[in-house]
Amino acid sequence: MDTAPYLVHRFGTSLVVLAGVSVVTYGLLFLTPGDPAEVILSQQLDRQPSEAEIEAFRAEHGMDEPVPLQYADWLTDVLRGDLGTSYYSDASISALILDALPLTLELAAASVVVALALAIPTGVLSAVHRGTAIDRASQLGALVGVSMPNFWLGYLLILVFALTLGVFPVAGAGSYSQLVLPAVTLGTGMAAVLTRLVRSSMLDVLDEGYLDTARSKGLRERIVVYKHALRNALVPVVTILGVQLGALLNGAVVIEIVFQRPGLGMLLVDAVFERNYPVVQGITLFTAVAFVVTNLLVDLSYRYLDPRVELGGDPT
């Protein structure tokens, strides 16, 4: 009934998860081979740095203090929204992320729209016409979609729609036409998983007695299916969608490279290649927070989809 205690409890656990994430991401720095200061300086100076230079670099970036103290300093900064500066450009990492974020969000949102727009009607049709040609075709389509690697589909789409037909630009970001191909690429893979889920979930629901109640009111079959059945079939779909949002970021890394979109994924890959640890750290942390928040939202949405869900019950 009352969601307040549940929210408090859920936020509490989320905080614990995030604290763990921060420790792990900070620890990444120490797991990497070689002395970061030395590695970075040698790249910046393009020669072996001297001991004095390394010492100076450490002092400048606070690397000479004890580790827990470094962590505390870092965390304080992070909580203030300061993720540090890039080793190379001295640009603020927060600024780098905020610059790249809109492109990734745009891609993610468009992909989810594509995925749902494909998966829901296909899955529902497939379930309603179970065992028919429609069902088999959609099942086959889903299988192909799941099996096909993202980047390959991406290049294929570029080949057909950009190079041969010339309807969409090959790569880049900024306009809607440039968003279409990457969103379709990323959305299709997700749609394939969701289609199967919508189908099986709908099949469970289609036998329910309350659909007969709805039919006996004189409702059109379309309303019976898309209002009464679908709402009940969506609960498991939303759960998987939440998990898939995490996978979406993985996908975005690949897709952004294929389509040369300077988003979060590309920023991450570049940072990894440059051993730009603070940037890697910042993006990892940001992604983890986004993931935790998304899942929190997904959990809260259950209550809307299925009123029987008692959020949390007793938090103890």
Binding site: D212, T213, R231, D306
Partner: peptide
Amino acid sequence: GDTVSMVFQDPDQTLNPA
């Protein structure tokens, strides 16, 4: 919608939980 209506057996099944 007009002439004939039906009441079903199982009270857990008649109404849509959503």
